[in-house]
Design a protein around this nucleic acid. Structure first.
Lengths: 233, 233
DNA sequence: AGACTACAAATAATGTATAATCAGGCGTAG
DNA sequence: CTACGCCTGATTATACATTATTTGTAGTCT
């Protein structure tokens, strides 16, 4: 069986410049995406340096990198703040996914080999065997399922964009669990998608992926709204 | 008449942290996008610091920012290199544009006011008056034309993405000039687009934008191929 | 009193300088 | 051809200067 650990598509993980830099970058990024750092929270360089046992230089660089990726916002002479991973943000990126993923999927239908299809089915089997019992595992399997379809796409830019968005959504949805309705929907859509690929029906596959991503986005948004309502009420 | 200087959509220009930082960032970025820095060229921090009369810190931060935006690639312990703005790169981003811009345009059709349409027409008049005589001016007007349609879109992420891609394409195409065929096509498509918006025909507007972006991308790619062939032959 | 302004101190970003380490590349000796 | 050692430059670490923003205080005006 193949590796079922969620991995970036092609051969390129941003992988920060080096040891300290990479670790600071990843730690801060995780803190943002997972919600440990609150929206709009100030990111004071000296504090972060102390917390992560490094000097200020790597922290400053990590923040700039995060700025370039959109996770951190700078105001001149007032430093960095956490970009809020709020409902708007999630909606924005899943809507972009709805536009991009169908195109990636359409291409895949024309390129899929028997091995690809076998692997998709193996993963789907595994997803069903797991049946959401282990949410982390489900997330990894599901990500892998889509990665197989997108990772060989010639448009590296689009694939990279997809992967970045995927990571954010994955981190956000870790906070929630799947509703029964959504579980059934995921299973059904994956199976249907595999069938489309087998049939070589690119258009239907694209439409299905659009629907799948749309559904996934809606699901997360509803969970976020519910959580917020619970917090407020 | 309104401002015809190309400007970012909403109120947010990345605008690096401060004077020196911003200028280093912009200068390096321009050098990359305009082709003054060649593909895969090494970006030695000390050199850049000297050339731009600053210390190494701002340079390193600018490079990290550029990395986050995808213009620079890092290898651990071997520093930064220019990400090649080659045909693949251009194709990648214009293809993404073909997917995203129609969605932005579709939304605009449902939101356009009489003032918006008047402004689009004014700009198109201006474009026709200029008639590609001043290419820079044409580029600014054309960018403004599209900015009007996209800048108020609720999906800030998508609008920002569009703007970043637009800047790259603008810089690349500065090296070339418009073929007669392309000139006519631009005029026709803009006028048709305005008509669609007046009619409230969102679907046709979206299709037209897709075609328009597709055509623009193809045009640039062909120019790039021609230039490369000329260089090689 | 309440509110507003001017100025001073505190906080932190930004830029500069310099050193210490470390990894990779290159040339030379064996 | 391989091993050793040197050189370049990346990366990290400090320390400090400069600048901008924020905050607080005191004095003044209404």
């Amino acid at each position: 069986m193949t590796e079922f650990k969620a991995q970036p598509p092609a051969g390129l993980e941003p992988s920060a410049a080096s040891r300290a830099g990479a670790s600071v970058y990843e730690l801060i990024r995780d803190d943002i995406v997972s919600g440990r750092l609150k929206a709009n929270e100030r990111l004071v360089v000296a504090e972060l340096a102390q917390r992560h046992r490094t000097s200020t230089n790597p922290v400053r660089e990590a923040l700039q990198l995060l700025r370039g990726e959109g996770f951190v916002v700078f105001s001149p002479n007032r430093g960095a703040r956490v970009r809020p991973i709020d409902q708007d943000f999630v909606r924005d990126i899943y809507e972009i996914g709805v536009l991009i993923e169908p195109a990636l999927a359409r291409w895949f239908v024309g390129m899929a080999t028997l091995e690809d299809i076998a692997e998709l089915e193996a993963i789907q089997d595994e997803i069903e065997r797991n049946n959401f019992a282990d949410p982390i595992r489900h997330s990894e399997l599901d990500t892998r399922f889509h990665t197989i379809m997108y990772e060989r796409h010639y448009n590296r830019h689009a694939a990279e964009l997809w992967w970045k968005h995927r990571e954010v959504l994955r981190a956000v949805s870790r906070r929630f669990s799947f509703t029964l309705a959504r579980r059934a929907q995921v299973m059904r859509e994956h199976r249907e998608l595999i069938q489309c690929i087998k049939d070589g029906d690119a258009e239907r596959a694209a439409a299905l992926v659009a629907q799948h991503v749309e559904g996934s986005g809606r699901h997360i948004l509803e969970q976020m709204r519910a959580a917020e309502a619970a917090r407020a009420g």
